[in-house]
């Protein structure tokens, strides 16, 4: 065990797997000597060399497109896209190819590719550096989407993502890259994809969230506990495929659900979760399912970005609303 930040845990996971699997290679912009703009790949080029830690030309479509070919050829490429907002240039490769290679080739070829990218806002960065558009990828059949919420989670989920036989978009909440440190197991540490985590148990309301939003959700749960409201907090971890079983089990118990995400409201994953609850747990509900989300606008630039992201007070308000309904 060592106490690590989320970015250090990502670095450790990459190191561990590069060491274990000679077919794994990293590609992306500034991941070599610079160690990545957030330092996720710090020290890796020194250890594994230029052929395995590859600074590419500045081309997201090129990075993801060639990674698909590398993966189909039998390698384990892990691509870094510098910010989620720059993944948009690779949408065609992801949607039209990564997600379809297996089905198009009737299983002859697969695409065991991981695309890692910093995601979400709150770091006072320029335009398009604060995106949380996970729904685009969740909406694409054939892609898996994973979001860690703590350092240990990041290591365990990233190792599983790299070993997964299918393409995984791995979204790293940049706001908490360095905000929290926790004990992370050394060596092998695998957290299976597709399983949510109940972070706090409770009887009165289910808070369903992921990534950086787990933290204000836990804070809200703590404050509600002082008022006698026991909130269950679920960290989804894998957004696609989603662990609906854990959600439904929880909502059947609590009868109330509040979904918290940083992404824009309309057609965010919250909408899908609410639909699943309606389909599978309608008769257990004692209040409408509420969402606490970002607005249906671009994330503002740093001066006013703080207004965009859901905060603890908004979560508390929603919890009070469903409890008092």
């Amino acid at each position: 065990m060592s106490k690590l930040s989320l970015i250090q845990a990502v670095n450790q996971a990459l190191y561990h797997e590069m060491d274990r699997d000679p077919d794994m290679i990293l590609l992306g912009e500034d991941i070599g000597l610079d160690g990545g703009v957030f330092r996720a790949t710090d020290g890796l080029i020194q250890k594994f060399g230029e052929d395995r830690v590859v600074d590419t030309p500045l081309s997201e479509s090129g990075i993801v497109g060639t990674a698909i070919g590398l993966a189909a050829y039998g390698l384990r490429p892990v691509a870094e896209i510098q910010f989620m907002g720059f993944l948009y240039g690779a949408m065609e490769q992801l949607i039209s190819h990564a997600a379809r290679i297996r089905s198009r080739s009737r299983g002859r070829y697969t695409c065991p590719l991981v695309v890692r990218t910093p995601y979400g806002g709150g770091i006072h960065a320029p335009e398009l550096h604060s995106e949380s558009t996970e729904a685009f990828f969740i909406h694409t059949p054939g892609l898996k989407v994973v979001v860690p919420s703590t350092p240990a989670e990041a290591k365990g989920l990233l190792l599983s993502a790299i070993r997964d036989p299918d393409p995984v978009i791995f979204l790293e909440p940049s706001k908490i890259y360095r905000a929290i440190k926790e004990e992370v197991p050394d060596g092998e540490h695998l957290i299976p994809l597709g399983e949510a985590r109940v972070v706090a148990e409770g009887e009165d309301v289910s808070l369903i969230t992921w990534g950086a939003m787990l933290h204000p959700s836990l804070e809200a749960a703590g404050k509600m506990a002082e008022k006698g409201v026991r909130a269950e907090v679920i960290d989804l971890r894998t957004l696609s495929p989603m662990d609906t079983g854990t959600i439904i089990q929880s909502v059947k118990k609590t009868g109330r659900a509040v979904i918290i995400h940083e992404a824009a409201r309309t057609c965010g994953l919250g909408a899908e979760i609410a639909a699943v609850i309606c389909e599978k747990a309608l008769l257990s509900l004692e209040a409408p399912v509420l969402r606490v989300t970002g607005y249906d606008t671009p994330v503002p630039l740093p001066k006013t970005e703080k207004y965009y992201f859901p905060d603890c007070d908004q979560i508390i308000e929603a919890v009070e609303e469903v409890v008092q309904f």
Partner: peptide
Amino acid sequence: WSGDERGSEMQDGQHDFPISIPVGT
């Protein structure tokens, strides 16, 4: 550069686009 959207406003008669963050796009 202080993170204020009004910093992208052009003057009347200035036929320029605001600067582009996604490289080359």
